[in-house]
Amino acid sequence: MTPQQYAIAETIGLNLFFIGIFIFIGMAIQDVLKKGEVPKFGRVFVWFVLFLGCAGFVFKGIVQVLWESNGLS
Rank of each mutant, 00 (worst) to 15 (best):
G36E: 00
V65I: 09
F48Q: 00
L52R: 00
G61M: 00
P39C: 01
P3H: 13
K40M: 12
I23T: 09
Q4D: 08
I29P: 06
L33H: 00
G56L: 07
L72Y: 11
L66D: 02
A7N: 04
E68Q: 10
F48R: 02
I8L: 08
V32K: 11
K40F: 12
F17R: 13
W67S: 15
K34A: 07
T11F: 15
L50P: 01
K40G: 05
P39S: 06
L14K: 13
A28H: 01
V63M: 11
G26L: 06
G13P: 03
N70G: 08
A9I: 08
E68N: 14
K35W: 07
V38N: 05
F18P: 04
G53V: 02
C54G: 14
I25N: 04
Y6Q: 15
T2L: 09
K34I: 07
I12L: 06
G36I: 00
E37S: 11
F18Y: 13
L16M: 11
C54P: 07
V44G: 03
A28N: 05
Q5L: 15
M1L: 09
M27H: 03
Q5T: 10
L50S: 09
Q4A: 14
I12P: 08
L66Q: 07
G20T: 05
L33A: 03
I19P: 10
I25E: 11
P3L: 15
G13C: 01
C54W: 12
V49L: 08
I19K: 10
F18M: 15
F24V: 10
F24L: 14
N15H: 08
E37R: 12
F17A: 12
V44I: 14
D31M: 14
I12D: 05
T11C: 09
G56I: 02
G56P: 04
T2D: 10
F18S: 10
A55E: 01
V58C: 02
I29G: 05
N70F: 11
G42M: 02
S73C: 09
V38G: 04
V46G: 03
V44T: 10
L52T: 03
I23D: 06
F41S: 13
L33G: 06
V65S: 05
